[in-house]
């Protein structure tokens, strides 16, 4: 199989630009809180709620934008499926690494300014400087959210309104992944602690993340394996 270099490069390039803008805005907010209020916790931790939605969007876009592009350029659905899977598997670590860098830059900023960088939510890591643990947590999260987006994007592409039926299954994937890292589930109108795994371990988290990733791919493939390209996107 051909390595999806350009698909991956395009995604990473876009993510890099967005990350730079996102980090700048978050830092600005941090400074504003420090000047006009009380800064006693990590702002970057709160900000990391947003990238998971971006990851979901990337999953949707993979099917909505790139599946038709691939087919129209003479690739098969099987070739696309394989390249998309490899892309997700390599893209999630990149997103996770960007969040790790964000935490480290924030640690540097807080230490220089003498601010307290406490975490407000339960994590696999106790401190933002525990790089392997921070990386693992967000890796699992991104793998799950991207593949959930891919699954739901495929369902909407194929069945349009009928894709609504895929949402509970997509949320199920996300809940499973979030439970593996002991994180809170924060969806619109829903915020609840997920104590399914009382003391999450790196191994549990990675195994669950990988399992969710493979499950998501297995759920997506039957939808796209013979999907017709729509004449017009609405």
């Amino acid at each position: 199989m051909r390595f999806p270099s350009r698909l991956l490069a395009a995604q990473i390039y876009f993510a890099g630009i967005l990350w730079a803008a996102f980090y700048a805005v978050t830092t600005l907010i941090t400074i504003c809180i420090a000047i006009f209020g009380t800064l006693d916790r990590s702002v970057w931790e709160g900000a990391t709620q947003v990238p998971r939605w971006f990851a979901l969007f990337v999953g949707v876009a993979l099917v909505r934008e790139f599946l038709p592009l691939y087919i129209a350029h003479g690739q098969t659905r099987r070739q696309f499926g394989a390249q998309a899977a490899v892309t997700v598997a390599l893209y999630a670590p990149v997103l996770s690494a960007l969040l790790v860098v964000g935490y480290l830059l924030e640690t540097l900023l807080y230490s220089v300014a003498g601010w307290t960088q406490e975490l407000a939510r339960p994590h696999l890591f106790a401190s933002p400087t525990q790089v392997p643990l921070v990386f693992t947590e967000y890796l699992v999260e991104f793998l799950v959210w991207i593949v959930a987006g891919t699954f739901m994007g495929a369902a909407f592409y194929r069945w349009q309104g009928g894709g609504l039926l895929s949402i509970p299954f997509g949320i199920g994937l996300v809940v499973l992944g979030e439970a593996a890292i002991g994180a809170d589930l924060r969806l619109p109108f829903i915020s609840m602690p997920l104590g399914v795994v009382s003391t999450p371990t790196v191994l549990t988290a990675l195994a669950t993340g990988l399992g969710c990733f493979l499950l998501g791919l297995a759920m997506t493939w039957p939808i796209i394996r013979d999907v017709p390209l729509r004449n017009r996107l609405t």
């Binding site: 038709p68 592009l69 129209a72 350029h73 390209l229 729509r230 017009r232 996107l233």
Partner: peptide, 8 residues
């Protein structure tokens, strides 16, 4: 095609 798969 008019759907623009290759250019969108």
């Amino acid at each position: 095609r008019d759907a623009g798969e290759t250019i969108d």
